[in-house]
Amino acid sequence: MIESQPTEIVTLDRLKDAVRIKWAAHARLVQIGCTKTAEDQYEINYSFDENLKFSNLRIVVNPATDRVPSISDIYWNAFFYENEVHDLFGITIEGMAIDFKGNFYRMAVKHPFAAPAGQKKS
């Protein structure tokens, strides 16, 4: 094992508080990444690094019903990742510092990662 990677699952409304705690501890935002685990279930991982100690915050959302609050008012650079998550997965994220409004990547397919697994490119 190279390093331990604890993951803390938080609810949507607690997300920003949890991120603020990370900010207060001077953790660096490493990445925000999304994974589709089931048809209406998407995991979003917020990874942080505190002096080489890696940790994750994870929220589980349903893009049809949930709206994810942006953390770019805490970590400004988060808007980059959030725009990406929005464009690739079609998850609504509210309050991004710079909102590209779906034009972060201009793609032949809209929200490609939201498509059912195994579907081929047209």
Binding site: V30, Q31, G33, C34, T35, W76, F80
Partner: peptide, 12 residues
């Protein structure tokens, strides 16, 4: 998923 260094450096 890959998060590459340039992606992280661009906002800065």
């Amino acid at each position: 998923r890959v998060r590459t260094p340039t992606f992280a450096n661009l906002p800065a």
